[in-house]
Structure formats: structure tokens, C-alpha cells
């Protein structure tokens, strides 16, 4: 099997040349996906503000959801939510 070479050229956390990880998307392996409790959510948007990957988006009714392809399951939204509305649903 041929060895794959990695070359990192840019600093904004990006690899320009394709490695063996290219068929995977950032959200393929994560610890858990955040779930919002809509009864208690006041729609303040703190989760959206602090998401490092821009995975949290606003739905038409004003509540928030996480994009499965982008979310890496870091849990910052769960930790930062003032009302403890978000819980991490563990996967795998």
C-alpha cells in the first residue's frame, strides 16, 4: 500500500492536499449530538454564538438545531446554555 503524504500549507486549520481522510466529513465521528428542549428554550442564540464550527443554525420557527454534517460534538453549546436546555445525546 502506498504511503499518503500530508502537507499542511495554510494556517486556518486546513489541509490543501487530499489525504486518506478526504471521503469523511467533519461530523462523521463525534461524541454526541446536541438536542434542544423546546419547552424551555428562550431562543437567545448563545449556542449559535459560541459554536466553533458554525454548525448551529436557526430554523424557521426561531429555535435552533445542529447540522449533523458539521457538528463535531465538542459540547460547548451544552456547557454555555444559561438554562441547561441542551443535552448531548451520546452516539456510538
Amino acid at each position: 500500500m502506498e504511503a499518503t503524504k500530508f502537507t499542511q500549507k495554510m494556517v486556518d486549520c486546513s489541509l490543501l492536499d487530499k489525504g486518506t481522510a478526504s471521503p469523511f466529513s467533519p461530523g462523521d465521528k463525534r461524541r454526541g449530538l446536541p438536542q434542544w428542549d423546546k419547552d424551555r428554550c428562550i431562543r437567545c442564540g448563545i449556542c449559535y454564538l459560541y459554536c466553533p464550527d458554525g454548525a448551529v443554525y436557526r430554523t424557521a420557527d426561531g429555535y435552533f438545531e445542529a447540522d449533523e454534517k458539521k457538528c463535531k460534538g465538542c459540547g460547548i453549546c451544552h456547557r454555555e446554555c444559561w438554562f441547561g436546555v441542551i443535552c448531548m445525546e451520546l452516539e456510538g
Binding site: 486549520c13 486546513s14 459560541y50 466553533p52 464550527d53 458554525g54 463535531k72
Partner: peptide, 21 residues
């Protein structure tokens, strides 16, 4: 959002990633 997720190989919870965004 201008942050390109396809280029983003940062670890979960990366501070640089949040700042760049």
C-alpha cells in the same frame, strides 16, 4: 456564515476555529 467547513480540520472545541469564524 463565511467559515468553510469543508476546509476545516480543526479538533472539536478549537479556540482558533471560533476566533477565525
Amino acid at each position: 456564515e463565511y467559515f468553510d467547513i469543508k476546509k476545516n480540520n480543526a479538533c472539536p472545541g478549537c479556540g482558533i476555529s471560533l476566533a477565525v469564524r
